[in-house]
Design a protein around this nucleic acid. Sequence first.
DNA 1: TTGCTCCTCACGTCACGTGAGGTGGC
DNA 2: TTGCTCCTCACGTCACGTGAGGTGGC
Lengths: 274, 274
Amino acid sequence: MPSSLAIGDFSRATHLSVKTLRHYHRLGLLTPAEIDPDSSYRRYSAEQIPTAQVIRRFRDVDMPLDQIGAVLDAPDVDARNALIAEHLARLEEGLVQTQEAVASLRGLLQGPSPALPMEHRSEPALQTAAINETVSLDDLGPWFQGALGELAATLVAQGVTTTGPPGAVIADDFFAQERGALTIFVPSAGPVRAVGRVEARSLPAVELATIVHAGSHADVDRSYGALATYVSDRALGVDGPIRERYLVGPLDTADEGEWRTEIGWPIFQTGPVA
Amino acid sequence: MPSSLAIGDFSRATHLSVKTLRHYHRLGLLTPAEIDPDSSYRRYSAEQIPTAQVIRRFRDVDMPLDQIGAVLDAPDVDARNALIAEHLARLEEGLVQTQEAVASLRGLLQGPSPALPMEHRSEPALQTAAINETVSLDDLGPWFQGALGELAATLVAQGVTTTGPPGAVIADDFFAQERGALTIFVPSAGPVRAVGRVEARSLPAVELATIVHAGSHADVDRSYGALATYVSDRALGVDGPIRERYLVGPLDTADEGEWRTEIGWPIFQTGPVA
DNA sequence: TTGCTCCTCACGTCACGTGAGGTGGC
DNA sequence: TTGCTCCTCACGTCACGTGAGGTGGC
């Protein structure tokens, strides 16, 4: 006769609340060993305690319940460990982001950002090697690194000379809906052959108001705000995607403090045509 | 004429999604400078950009929206900084807990816990100095530290001799609902005068199955599970609150690895009466 | 004029918690 | 037998996101 515990005792044994245990039962994550057909009373076996502990530990590190289910149902140890390692990596990244956000918060509260020089620039039409995809803000970091790396590698492999720093064209949707079309490009002296995600793409000429953002991209919205204020105060804005150029970026140094990002906001043509 | 931005432009300026901006408007957290009475179109002023940036930074560190509202509405800088410091302290604690949880997870996945010795013990009736309150699991850490400190200080101040390590009586509700009555006590040679939250309290004699948990309380559910399995397998359990005794605890050392916590689960009287 | 931007409203998500109203088990 | 434990069901919370259906502005 296997020993069985009422839900209250199982709650004491596992430090999971009764409400939580019922919730896990509803979802099929932790089904009681037995259920009385008359009273619907749940009965858990003592052998279920370790499973409950594992679930609790994963919840402690904010793993979603469906992923916990996947871990519990993993066909073998390798698959299980892969899922766990993946989540721990995400956690790690979250910690880093929180630390950056705290630093950035201190910066923001310590006073206004130093005035950054605004410029107007006529960006000529560009021949580029580019990767274009629809991306969610959530996936931006890894996607950006991957796309930039793939571009650089492809250009080297094809022996194509670059004629400027890499950049991006960011559809308005990306800001408004946190998901939209992004183009990462590198200006190229000659045409590239399409390989992988890389293809040749020509970008139209635009008039831009620009600002150069110094440091981590976690802070980039401060420069966006300064630029938007400048453009708005002068009623210069026109429709069109934002452009960024990575004057100093992840391809140049791992020290984010060294990064220099030019942000370009489309404006009326105000200067004389060259 | 102050410059104003449509919601889409304000989204680009602040890197907040349009949905999010509408949400903040609904809540009154960030009300557009102007709203067209006909079309209900929102218009933001450039001066609202810094406020939006501050909100974004606080959300990046998971501050709840109502607290962000409180920060923005703080009457003076001191009040504002106090709210911020409070949240950063909570964040810090969350990071520590996550790290503990990761360590604990590794431990759990590395195999079964070493078998811990189970004992049966007749706990005699005790005269104690005690603090009794209803506490939520969320508040447990600080509450526990505070209650233990207050007890120790009161006993010293009154010159009352303690006759054993401190302990706790934990109502079943506390596990089932993550909120319930907790009594923190120290056995005392003589009676204490009620001061602050401290009062004299006598505890009834009980029969207990016990286990000694080594290390941080973050892991204590493993020992609870082992004890529950033991009690359940032998059908020994009776109603009654769990007891804990802090053989080595926060009053003795800050090194959580050194802590020793005895957990006592009420059982039938099985041994001869002394 | 087209199509893009913006609007509201209702409902969904995630991981539970709350509370009403009622019944079973020791 | 009392009162405690357990049950279901519906709704709430938090911070938005999704999607339908429709309108305004350049």
